[in-house]
Amino acid sequence: MTAFSQQWLLTETPSSRSQAAWGRRYRAWLALRSNTLAMIGLVVIVTFVVLSLAAPLLATHDPGSQDLANRLARPSAAHWFGTDELGRDLYSRILYGGRVTLGMVIAVVVLVAPLGLAIGCIAGYFGGIVDRILMRVTDVFLAFPRLILALAFVAALKPGVESAILAIALTAWPPYARLARAETMTVRNSDYIAACRLTGAPSGRIILRHVAPLCIPSLIVRITLDMSSIIITAASLGFLGMGAQPPSPEWGAMIATTKRFIFEQWWVPTIPGIAIFMASLAFNFLGDGLRDVLDPKQR
């Protein structure tokens, strides 16, 4: 397809808006590609997502089928990662667990990021009484220990993955709101925002189109740093019987229920631990790379 040739994309003199936009995306992709760590992160995440989605095809066993005679088995040809305390195949459980864990993490981020961004930007942009009310609400949520608040939410709803997602989301947004507010305050009085106001644009438009995009890079970094703690919170909820319900395989819950075997059958809790570790690290790498790419001044 000639329209998307490299030359067409990289021209210094694009002739139309769409060409310029595609060129920009292509350059962003090139910048991301040249960032080795970010690419490692991206590859790991894509691999994890694909593996989880294809779990029914790749799994060697039913993740729920127990074989008590063969519990806590070492990794072998029959059970690639060994078996857990109920003799379930760890490899299959990791694959299916990815669906639950990654699904939860992504759902939480999708809920939390826009909420925190919106509250932070509105508070920071308007200032005064709006700021005070929104920030006091934020403080209230910040003041509670995360897990306790999440527990209370789940207890009020019915235990399960959906409730856990909702609970974590409700407790995870305040730091993002704080961050977005701080970023907004630094740009609120700038001349370019004044110039936007002078176009006659309503406040909503200014916040959405001009202020919020400036807050996104630091928000992305913050979110990727929080990924692991979201996974851990999800696991803790599961451990307390408030998150993913057994026998549903969830990485955090898999660690929590088998941690007493860490010395004798170390691979049982370690393997889901490695999965969590790799996913968090990959998200961090990707987030760092994305931040650099999202800032056109860095290019």
Binding site: D191, A195, C196, A201, R209, H210, L214
Partner: peptide, 20 residues
């Protein structure tokens, strides 16, 4: 300081037109 650092000139100039 008076031009949005993350918008192209095209976007900066089209903004007033879109608003009005």
């Amino acid at each position: 300081g008076s031009l949005h650092p993350r918008q192209t000139i095209d976007r900066i100039l089209s903004e007033p037109l879109l608003v009005h």
